[in-house]
Each structure stands twice: as C-alpha cells, then as structure tokens.
C-alpha cells in the first residue's frame, strides 16, 4: 500500500483513474467538479495521456465513445446539468457495449438549479437516457471509498463492456480526507472487438444501429442477460449496526455518513437504529431491504432530494413495513439532529 495523503475528493477521484490506467479524459467545465478536469489537464500529459477540454458535454461523451471504441480506458466527469447532455453519448456507449467511466458530482436542480451538493440525479443515474439500458452506478461515501470504487469502476466497465457512473455529491467532490491508493496494476481485458485497424483480421464495427426489429430485440435480450449477470455478481451494500436495529435508515453517499452520526446520537439515547447503505445504486440491493423489512418497525429513507431512491427502497421492502422519507434539497444538507428528530417523531407515533 502507498503513503497516506490528504486529498480533495475530486482530485483523488482523478488520480485514482490515472492509477487505474486511464490516460484519456474528455470534459467540459461545470461547478462543482472543475478540480477533476483541472487535475487531469496537468496529470495526464505527465503519464503520456491526452486531455481535451471539449466544446460541450455532448462532444465530450462522444469523444469518450471514440476512445473507448479503439479499446482505451477513458473517462469524463461532470455535474448534473452536464450529465444530462452526456446521456446522449453514454446511451450510444451502452448500445455499442463500450466501457466508459463517468463521474457525476451532483448539484441541485432542476434546470440550472444551484451549485451546492445534492442527490437529485438518482433517477438520471439509475434510469438513464434513451433506450433500454443500465449504467452500473456506484456511490462512495468517503474519499477513500471514492478512490477504491473509481479503480473498480474501470474494471466493471471493461468486464461488462458498459458505462459505469460514479455518483458523488458536491460534498464528496469538495471535502478532503486521507487516502491510500491501491498499487495493484490495472487488469487486462480482451478487447479484440476494438477498432484498431483490421490488419490480419476481418473488419470490426462498433455500432448501436439495428434496423431489423428482430436483430434489435436480440441485441436488447443480449444486453439484459449481461445486466442479469451484473445483478448476480456486483451488488454492494453496507449494513451498519443492523444486528439489533428496530429502525433502519436508508441512505447513500454523504447522506449515509450524516445518518451514521445521527445513529450515534440515537443509540446514546437508547434507540436501536441502524443503516442500510447501498453502495451500488444499480444493481440495487433489493434483497437486503426485503430481509431488513421483516425485522424493523420502519425504514426512514434520507436523501438530498425530494425522494428518488425511496422508490427502490419501497420495491425492496414490498410493504413488509412502513417506509418514511426525510429529504433536504437545493444544496441544503440535512443535519444529524434533524434525522434524530424524525426518528423520534416516527417512533412516538
């Protein structure tokens, strides 16, 4: 293991990508993730890579498509409104089965919204652009986890030939924490499908166009068999103090950390409260919630949104227990004490 260093989330995410063998970055400036392209604009040229400040997020995602099509590890990053624009290129990546990693440092919306932290892109991440497809979505809660998941993201993208979205909020992007980078070398994957010039073989085509309905249906079936594999193999979830819990909080990312502080306060008062923290938002840990639902009085879903992940929580709980919601939006970050009060109020009902 390497040296422990204090790093800002955005920069740590960028450095993790470089260490995962990503030498290509295409992006467009948007707050609050500018430290990612700024870091890459310097770092990638040091490692023999390339950085392009694209003319738009649309162009950036299509540059990623091109670089992935020739078999290289590539990433982009953006924040909510920019990710909407990137949905175009990323749908093509999913349709053409190209591995791309995209970082979304979420800010509040809709529209131009604000520049402060939010979790209002859960839908945009887990119910992505046009067509039947999925991103693998991973949501770190600490900078160390962001670094580890970022390196995993490139492996997941390559293994399943699919876009992976690292969904962070503005807090993860801006805060600094100590991190240690794994030093295992990037894994190699078969990329014989890539467009590298057809010397000694038939030509390769990278394409998402299937004009024959039967072909397109088969292609969709193929993609979803792959997604079944992802659901089977890649669900990640943290259960925190759930062994004896009578109440389960449900939260991801920074909100989950705030919940942990709230749980500390509640447990000090004798309330047995735990947390279920999805680390992969897709595939979603439905089974964990189903199991938990039989043991707790209720689930309180906490988000920095008007309630997006709660839809998946409810799908997991399947009415085995009540699911309540508490959310702050627009860049307002819930305080631990607010969550404490919600739990106390619900327990008193």
């Amino acid at each position: 293991m390497g040296e422990k260093i204090l790093m800002k989330g955005s920069e740590a995410i960028a450095e993790a990508a470089v260490r995962a063998g990503c030498k290509l970055f295409f992006g467009y400036p948007i707050t609050p993730q500018n430290e990612v392209p700024e870091y890459m604009s310097k770092r990638l040229f040091e490692v023999g890579g390339q950085f392009v400040q694209a003319e738009s997020e649309v162009a950036a995602s299509n540059m990623c498509y091109g670089a992935a099509a020739v078999g290289h590890r590539v990433m982009t990053s953006s924040s909510s409104p920019g990710v909407t624009l990137k949905q175009e290129g990323l749908s093509y990546c999913a349709g053409s089965e190209l591995p791309v990693v995209v970082v979304n440092v979420m800010r509040g919306g809709p529209g131009l919204g604000g520049i402060q932290p939010a979790q209002s892109d859960y839908f945009q991440a887990t119910r992505p652009g046009h067509g039947d497809f999925r991103y693998i979505v991973i949501a770190p809660a600490t900078i160390q986890e962001a670094v580890d998941l970022m390196m995993d993201a490139f492996d997941l993208a390559d293994r399943y030939r699919n876009p992976v979205m690292v969904l962070a909020d503005g807090l993860i992007g801006q805060m600094m924490e100590p991190v240690v980078f794994r030093e295992d070398p990037p894994k190699e994957y078969d990329k014989s499908w890539a467009c590298t010039g057809c010397a000694g073989r038939e030509k390769n085509i990278v394409n998402s166009l299937y004009l024959d309905p039967k072909d397109l249906e088969d292609h969709n079936f193929h993609l979803f068999r792959k997604y079944d594999e992802v659901e089977k193999n890649e669900i990640r979830v943290e259960e925190y103090l759930m062994e004896d819990a009578e109440v389960a909080l449900a939260a991801y990312g920074t909100t989950a950390r705030i919940c942990k502080t709230a749980i500390g306060l509640l447990r000090a008062q004798g309330f047995k409260v735990g947390l279920v923290r999805p680390i992969t938002l897709w595939p979603f840990p439905y089974r964990t919630f189903r199991k938990v639902a039989d043991r707790v009085r209720f689930v309180l879903d906490v988000e920095m949104s008007m309630g997006q992940m709660i839809q998946d929580v409810r799908l997991g709980v399947v009415e085995r227990c009540p699911v309540h919601f508490y959310g702050r939006v627009g860049g307002m970050v819930p305080a631990p004490v607010e969550i404490v009060q919600q739990v106390q109020r619900l327990l008193a009902e």
Partner: peptide, 16 residues
C-alpha cells in the same frame, strides 16, 4: 491530524 494517526475531514464552504 492525519499524520498523527487520527481520522480527519476538511470541508470547505464554497460559493460562486
């Protein structure tokens, strides 16, 4: 704090 082995977080407030 990191160098003395503690856990630590630095969190900025930022505006436009």
């Amino acid at each position: 704090a990191m160098l003395q082995g503690s856990k630590t977080v630095w969190m900025p407030s930022y505006g436009p």
